[in-house]
Design a protein around this nucleic acid. Structure first.
Lengths: 147, 147
DNA sequence: TCTTGATCTCAACTTAGCTTGAGGTTGTAC
DNA sequence: GTACAACCTCAAGCTAAGTTGAGATCAAGA
């Protein structure tokens, strides 16, 4: 049964479109856990193709590696994820998307209120909301759009 | 007329909620162009409060400094931006938001097609679209959501 | 005048998400 | 049995958007 054979990192890269270095990086971050050949080279399961596909999809949604890792944490390495696994994750991602869309729509509505008024003054403009920026983690302004 | 007096960097920081270091950074990036006091300290125009307010708003929309700089490039330093200036920029920003929302809705629709099917295989899944990632600028996967 | 807070410059550090390079080993095809 | 691509580790570099710190100078009130 050739379809159960392990994949080299290069083969996995070819299958996913990721670079070899990115896959190694993801291993470091705990997204995949390859075993090793007798000579020390990485060997991946076929189910890792799916794991990494998920990583790519989740990145398109703007999830950070850490957030993706948390989603994948419950997915067992070594067994092909079940349909229920993906359903659970897909639903979680849908919530993320919905929230992000809602946030953008709110911004758009506020912007509409500003078009033509030229009010961009700190006192009056609803778009500029200093409270939004207070208590942001880390250095400097962060994209509110990112979660 | 006290309202025409120039602002120190600290005063501008207080008015905008930005840090002093961020304002210096923005100057370096060309977003503001303060003149200097006889002793070499920065002096800002009152219109710079608006410029920086705009920077904050645009950042909430996810624009990079470079993109913001391009928007502001046409706005003269030294004269208070007109209502027409802001209207033009506001409309441009609305397009950005609309595009971003549309992109997310597309992703959501594709995700809906996947919920329950557990199909995350490279061959079949509509969510995973390798072509989307080809030719992305810079190193590694980028958020498709960002522009 | 003196002192003190605000400012100055310049360099180094931060986080995320990787890439690139150096120098060395593995595995496989001929 | 040897060549050579693919793999290994580890360190350093990259971009964005700033922050932090050192050491020096400016400005303004008492």
């Amino acid at each position: 049964m050739p379809e159960t054979k392990a994949l080299t990192i290069g083969a996995l890269a070819a299958r996913t479109g990721l670079s070899v270095s990115a896959i190694r990086f993801y291993e470091e971050k705990g997204l995949v856990e390859p075993f090793r050949s007798s000579g020390g080279q990485r060997r991946f399961l076929r189910s890792d193709i799916r794991r990494l596909s998920f990583v790519l999809i989740a990145q398109q949604l703007g999830l950070t590696i850490g957030e993706i890792e948390r989603q994948l944490a419950d997915l067992p390495h070594g067994r092909t994820p079940t349909q229920a696994d993906w359903t659970r994750i897909s639903k979680a991602m849908r919530k993320v998307i919905d929230a992000r869309i809602a946030e953008l729509e709110r911004t758009r509505d506020r912007l509409d209120g500003c078009i033509g008024c030229g009010c961009l003054s700190l006192k009056k403009c609803q778009l500029y909301n200093p409270e939004d920026r207070i208590g942001l983690k880390g250095p400097g302004p962060r994209l509110v759009l990112e979660d």
